[in-house]
């Protein structure tokens, strides 16, 4: 067994920098957009990559967050986060001027198409996090970008106004029908898959499995990439906490969410085994 046959993240770009809080916008109940001044990361992070944030005083281990949006001109980065425990609570209550250690960029992000393509971005809840940056990059390359955004209720939908302009289409769904259509993202997915070359998805692991299976069935020619969750300790491959079940040439192989992921091809994930795993550090 050679342990890692799948490509790994490039750790040589990761830097541990002192980031300064610019502000925190409350976007919904327990949902916040944290903006930090972090000049190095703002120029380096690719869509789907993440940072490990540490706030003091706070939990011992850092917490991983996908880069939501970047402004290299101003040297800022933003993170969309849901308050889940002590670490996220402290991040959501940061005051402007306070500092946070930011280690990143880490992980493997989304692959960008080599040729002109039509992409569908599928978000579930706080899983919208990596898509403003991804959409910006895709649009800058002249791609057609469709946006499918789902959440439990209207107040938990990532606001459309936070996405870049120029989207080819946007559909919103909520579990309770309080905004957009009533239902799950998979209810709206079939009609949006026509003509799509790429599907990018981020949300709860069961949603990602459902999207992957539906896309494989209805649009087998599309490339499907998912950003998955696992309880993460270090973020760069040494603690071995974020073990995830992967497949390589059809055979099961162990992987680490922080090195082979968090973005993986849908066919690289052993979905049935992943279902049995927790998504968050406890």
């Amino acid at each position: 067994m050679s342990p890692f046959q799948l490509p790994e993240s490039d750790l040589s770009r990761a830097r541990d920098e002192a980031a300064t809080c610019i502000g925190v916008d409350e976007l919904g109940p327990n949902l916040h957009l944290l903006t930090l001044e972090a000049a190095t990361a703002s120029r380096a992070a690719l869509p789907g990559e993440f940072a490990q944030l540490q706030v003091e005083p706070g939990p011992l281990l850092r917490r991983p967050f996908s880069f939501c949006d970047l402004d290299p001109g101003r040297g800022t980065v933003s993170f969309y986060l849901r308050v889940y425990g002590e670490g996220t609570r402290r991040l959501a209550h940061l005051t402007p001027g306070s500092t946070v250690r930011l280690l990143g960029p880490l992980g493997r992000g989304f692959s960008l198409p080599e040729t002109r393509a039509s992409s569908l971005l599928v978000a579930g809840g706080v899983g919208a996090a990596p898509f403003p940056h991804l959409a910006t990059q895709l649009l800058a390359r002249g791609e057609r970008v469709h946006w499918l955004n789902g959440a439990a209720g209207s107040d938990q939908l990532f606001p459309l106004r936070r996405m870049p302009g120029g989207l080819a289409g946007s559909v919103q769904v909520t579990d309770d029908g309080s905004s957009g259509r009533r239902g799950l993202v998979t209810d709206a997915l079939p009609e949006l898959l026509g003509g799509v070359d790429r599907v990018y998805a981020c949300g709860p692991n069961p949603m990602l499995q459902a999207v992957s299976e539906m896309a494989a069935r209805l649009r087998p020619e599309a490339l499907v990439e998912v950003s998955i969750e696992a309880p993460m300790g270090c973020g760069f491959g040494t603690c071995l906490g974020c073990s995830i079940p992967l497949r390589f040439r059809g055979a099961p192989v162990p992987g680490l969410c922080c090195r082979q992921g968090p973005v993986l091809g849908a066919d690289q994930v052993d979905w049935e085994a992943l279902r049995r795993q927790p998504a968050h550090l406890e």
Binding site: G241, S243, Q277, L281
Partner: peptide, 11 residues
Amino acid sequence: RPGNAPPRIAE
């Protein structure tokens, strides 16, 4: 050795 099934760490 493949190691233990997750979860493997807790804070």
